[in-house]
Amino acid sequence: MIFLRRTFPLILAFVVGVIGILVFYVPHSVAQALERDLAKWFMIIAAFAYFLGLYSLMTLHWTRVRARQPGWGYSLVAYLSFAVMVVFIVYNDGHGPFHAQAEAGGYQWLYLNVYVPCTSSMFSILAFFIASAAYRTFRARSPEAALLLLAGLIVMLGRVPIGAYISDVIPDAAQWLMAVPNMAAKRGILLGVSLGAIATSLRIIFGIERAYLGGGEE
């Protein structure tokens, strides 16, 4: 059991990791074919993750409904919503589930007129939260904070047409702030984060990092 839970995954991570690195440097057709096959296998595994997610979600909500936990009504709504979408997917505008996705139909209508507005509304809450967070925290407590505040104000004005309407300098200043100091900072963070990602990847490939296996210490 230990072999399947610990040793085999580590061997697999090492072998696939090394192959993944090598195929980047080897142009030979054998290496390219291997890369193509690995990509297809990964796509299949990634697709299975959706089924796993679905099972996990349905189990979670079923447990809540069955035990009448607080908020179980919302879990029922989740089940009903899922059922309605499945009905329309199976119906597939009259073509049935084994036909390719129909261009129109109930599924597309629900997607565009229910799902998209719901998610857009959640995203739009950010506008309100940004305003309240900005009011609470964007205060010039120090010279550095004042400088940051000034830069933020210039970029906020420069990114909308009213900035250019007020003065042509504002959008140019905003563009300079984005393209020079912001880019420099972003590049520095990118270098550091990339080095960190390389180090962590090496630890995973060589079996030093095992958190992804679960269980903490080895």
Partner: peptide, 19 residues
């Protein structure tokens, strides 16, 4: 948000409590 992350997190927390 991810079931695989959840599985790993469950194992991690369980091991921590065991320790």
């Amino acid at each position: 948000v991810d079931p695989i992350v959840m599985s790993v997190s469950q194992e991690t927390v369980k091991e921590a409590y065991l320790e």
